[in-house]
Design a protein around this nucleic acid. Structure first.
Lengths: 152, 152
DNA sequence: CTTGAACCTACAGCCGCTGTAGATTGTATC
DNA sequence: GATACAATCTACAGCGGCTGTAGGTTCAAG
């Protein structure tokens, strides 16, 4: 009789929220587990490992499609590690791009936020800078220039 | 007779997409403009300035609620610049946090992606690392640890 | 048996967009 | 004026990755 976990236990052990675990199941990232007579999910050790893998990959910013691929690779012993490396390198490149952009944004924000002269004649420097679009950083292609800071 | 702009002209002049301009209008960030007899939007110079301000602020990662506040401040001449500074500093702090986290993520990814030994016995290093959650960076509170790289 | 936490599904929303179907308008050219 | 085509319109839905809640059931401890 192998050890079983409820969804709450899975959540507490991996740090992935219950609603998120259900979401991952709906996305096919984790298999639907067996159920109790009453309909409650019961997971095994393998499912726990899989969820932990998923969580770790999410932490590193891999998107769910790439994670699905990595998981498939993990379950298919193969001599070819190229696909996994491709995915990891792609993510590394994206992190590098993001870091470059954030550094630029930081400069402008620092200028704006740390101005000694907060403003004059009813016009704040923050507002002035934002109103002066010669100070815009990017081209009109904004897809990578926004300092999106959301965690999810 | 002041100069008028169609929504497409607004888009080309500011780099904000037509659908996004409509979205901003629905969110109340820009006022609904006058219309032609046929129902097409016609904007004035002031609207163009406002949209440019909005775009610049988005570029810097300010969220729409904060931008709405900044725009209200811009339109209300006041001696008090504290609210604008507060918003700017909050954003600066968020950028700093994100940069710190990205640096950490970068380290781990680099380790993973640049390994000289790509893997052995059918087990890739990338996969191994992801499966070893002792290498996780963060606590179980992931809200700021994900390397979200999306531009929007 | 009772109680209350944990669990279930269905549905909707967050944030900031973004696209598309089907229809109308505006403008340039003939 | 007629034609052609790009531009514009609204309504609706979707992206990515979650996240919450209403209303109901199950599980486990006392």
């Amino acid at each position: 009789m192998t050890k079983e976990y409820s969804i709450g236990q899975m959540s507490r052990r991996t740090g992935v929220k219950v609603t998120t675990i259900r979401y991952y199941e709906s996305r096919g990232l984790i298999p639907s587990p067996g159920r109790t007579q009453g309909g409650q999910r019961r997971y095994d050790e393998a499912a726990l490992e899989r969820l932990a893998f998923l969580r770790h990959a999410r932490e590193l910013g891999f998107n769910l499609d790439d994670i699905a691929e990595l998981m498939a690779l993990a379950e298919t012993p193969s001599e070819d590690c190229a696909p996994a490396y491709e995915i990891a390198r792609k993510q590394l490149a994206a992190v590098d791009r993001r870091m470059t952009i954030l550094a630029q944004l930081r400069e402008e924000l620092a200028r704006m936020a740390n101005a000694d002269d907060p403003g004059h004649a009813g016009k704040c420097r923050v507002i002035e800078v934002l109103g002066d679009h010669r100070l815009c950083i990017g081209s009109h292609d904004l897809s990578d220039s926004r300092a999106d800071l959301s965690g999810s």
